[in-house]
Design a binder for these strands. Structure first.
Lengths: 221, 221
DNA sequence: AATATTTTTTAGGACTACCTAAATTATATG
DNA sequence: CATATAATTTAGGTAGTCCTAAAAAATATT
């Protein structure tokens, strides 16, 4: 049941692979993983063999990797913890949403089912973390909402911001400075040749670059 | 200032040595440390050399070890975190005081000064943890209170329970079952030949063994 | 004080997770 | 489709932390 204990490093690999599986079709490559966990590809080759041995993923030489059921479940547990802790840091300790990632990266590796369950209750069983990402329940189920990337929204549509794709500090602080938060209403006025978009945010006209528009998750009203 | 980062293992050694220094006069022996951190003495010899190299302690071959100022300050930081997290677990997540030690042992190694400071504020800057142990402030200062061990209290004196010496689960559950908590008033009625004590607890007569009496910290009213 | 016992250290490995450099396989290009 | 390039793996090594067994030092006993 809850008896599988992975090392901190193993958990980071599993989490990285989980995230990569949602970005690419097919198996996840050695190089992609090495980018994500910031080690050399040769270290990844070592590690995926260890993880394959533990039935957390399927590894085929030169072909890449994908998580097994067991691996996905392990990933969900780490992600659940990460997102609950981020919520705690923002909701209870008043951190800004751009300050919590590194701390949550540490907290996500604390092993205690009781702790996670109680934390979840303490926070009021939140469905989404401060970046708008859904928090898996204790069984690892993820409610997916039909969010879209802002850059895919056609002209004249009105949407609300529900999350961010990459939650790097720079990007989050950029949004803060412009008063764009989760829940902010955005109307798409038009798109420019360079992919930038003209918007109406908080009733004021505002333009964002392609990069920003591609990093914002929104939902039709 | 806060730039010193120790590994989890190093922090555990420093913490263990700190605790042992408060129990024995003079330098702390290799064997005592190996008992405390649950490794073999030869591993301790390895590790104290590493810690001496980092100026956290003074090591003299065959003579034992004592913390430097730097080492004590590192120990206080870990202890501060441990006790704040224990307080969090009991006060906010409603854990029992006998359930929190192992989780706090993990949480105490999270590195973030901002987190500790905010947690401290969130908890209302508590002075004592759920076991009655004082929580060092951000500068590592420890307010010591003149607590005594129950077994040293003479007949007819009335005291209140302020803490426990060893906070093992068995002992804490024993106290819970008898409704002895921090704040409980205890009157010493008499002592027996075997070191056991006759008490008045919650207005009811109650006897404790020498072992229990030696593990309870009390303070004159 | 000599010897027995206990404590501590040394020597030599083991294991995890990393690295570099070289070899191999897969993919892309002409 | 042959070759150049890129991706991946293998081989061999390092650092941190642990271990066992043997040697050395300290302490206790007679």
């Amino acid at each position: 049941m809850g008896g599988l204990i992975l090392s901190l490093v193993e958990e980071n690999y599993i989490k990285a692979i989980y995230h990569l599986e949602n970005e690419v079709k097919g198996d996840v490559s050695t190089n992609a993983i090495s980018d994500e966990v910031k080690t050399k590809p040769s270290s990844v080759t070592d590690m995926v063999q260890v993880l394959a041995e533990k039935d957390l993923l399927i590894y085929k030489k030169y072909k890449g990797v994908h998580l097994t059921k067991k691996g996905k479940s392990a990933a969900m547990k780490v992600i659940r913890k990460h997102r609950l802790w981020e919520t705690f840091l923002v909701e209870k300790l008043n951190f800004q949403w751009d300050e919590v990632h590194d701390i949550a990266e540490q907290l996500e590796h604390i092993h205690s089912d009781a702790l996670v369950d109680r934390l979840d209750d303490f926070l009021g069983n939140p469905e989404y973390d401060p970046h708008g990402d859904p928090i898996p329940d204790a069984e690892g189920n993820l409610k997916s909402r039909n969010k879209k990337v802002l850059s895919h929204i056609p002209e004249n549509e009105v949407v609300i911001c529900v999350g961010v794709k990459e939650s790097g500090s720079d990007f989050l602080r950029y949004l803060d400075k412009r008063n764009i938060n989760i829940g902010t209403e955005i109307k798409v006025l038009g798109k420019e040749f360079d992919g930038s978009m003209d918007l109406l945010v908080n009733s004021k006209p505002f333009s964002v670059s392609e990069q920003v528009a591609g990093n914002l998750y929104v939902q039709p009203i």
